[in-house]
Computed example of a mutant assay.
Amino acid sequence: MTVRTSTLFERLGGETAVKAVVDKFYLRVMEDSRINHFFAGVNMEKQREHQAAFLKFTFGGSSYYQGLSLRKAHQNLVKEFGLSDEHFDAVFEHLVSTLKDLNVANDLIQEVGDNLESIRSYVLDK
């Protein structure tokens, strides 16, 4: 039996790596007409900071997260703007592509994907 001694956050490269992922990820998102409208009027600098903090928490780099719950943070997007599985899949696609572009190992990409898939129902309020 293999015991992991480091978090996904550490195995991805820590703070610097996660910030690089977030920056490149949002460049892709903002070019995608399927999902970029969800960010109209959003302060993207703050969004990037918030996303990096969320991923740090989600990937085990911090035991503290100050933001809203996933359900509450996305509730209006679901009700007012129709955030759906199609949009979630587009986000998933961009995150995986970003990780591949940054030469992240496939096993880590799979772990990130599993992590993301586990929160789908909370984001989409299902």
Rank of each mutant, 00 (worst) to 15 (best):
Asp23Phe: 02
His87Trp: 10
Arg28Phe: 11
Val123Phe: 02
Lys24Cys: 11
Leu108Arg: 04
Val42Trp: 09
Phe81Ala: 09
Val18Met: 01
Ser84Ile: 12
Glu86Gln: 10
Val78Trp: 14
Glu93Met: 05
Lys19His: 12
His94Glu: 09
Val42His: 04
Val3Leu: 15
Leu95Val: 11
Phe81Arg: 13
Leu124Ser: 02
Leu108Phe: 08
Leu70Gln: 02
Arg4Lys: 15
Ala73Tyr: 07
Thr16Phe: 00
Gly113Val: 03
Asn76Pro: 13
Glu117Met: 06
Ala90Pro: 01
Ile109His: 09
Gly13Val: 13
Phe88Asn: 00
His87Ser: 09
Asp107Trp: 03
Asn36Glu: 07
Gly113Asn: 07
Asn36Trp: 02
Ile119Leu: 11
Gln110Tyr: 01
Arg71Asp: 09
Lys79Leu: 06
Ser84Pro: 02
Lys100Phe: 01
Thr16Cys: 09
Val3Tyr: 10
Arg28Val: 11
Glu86Tyr: 03
Gln47Gly: 02
Phe38Gln: 08
Asp101Met: 11
His94Tyr: 12
Glu10His: 11
Lys100Cys: 06
Phe39Thr: 07
Leu83Cys: 05
Thr7Val: 07
Gly61Tyr: 11
Lys100Arg: 14
Arg4Glu: 09
Glu15Ser: 10
Glu80His: 08
Leu102Asn: 05
Asp23Gly: 09
Thr7Tyr: 04
Gly14Gln: 10
Glu117Thr: 15
Ala40Ile: 14
Leu99Thr: 01
Thr2Met: 13
Asn76Trp: 13
Leu99Cys: 08
Ser62Ile: 01
Arg28Cys: 03
Asp32Asn: 04
Glu117Phe: 14
Glu10Phe: 07
Gln47Asp: 09
Ile35Ala: 00
Gly60Met: 09
Thr16Val: 06
Glu111His: 13
Lys46Gly: 03
Leu12Asn: 00
Gly61Trp: 01
Leu83Glu: 03
Lys46Asp: 14
Asn115Phe: 06
Thr2Leu: 14
Thr7Phe: 14
Leu99Asp: 05
Asn103Thr: 06
Gln51Gly: 09
Gly41Tyr: 04
Gly41Leu: 04
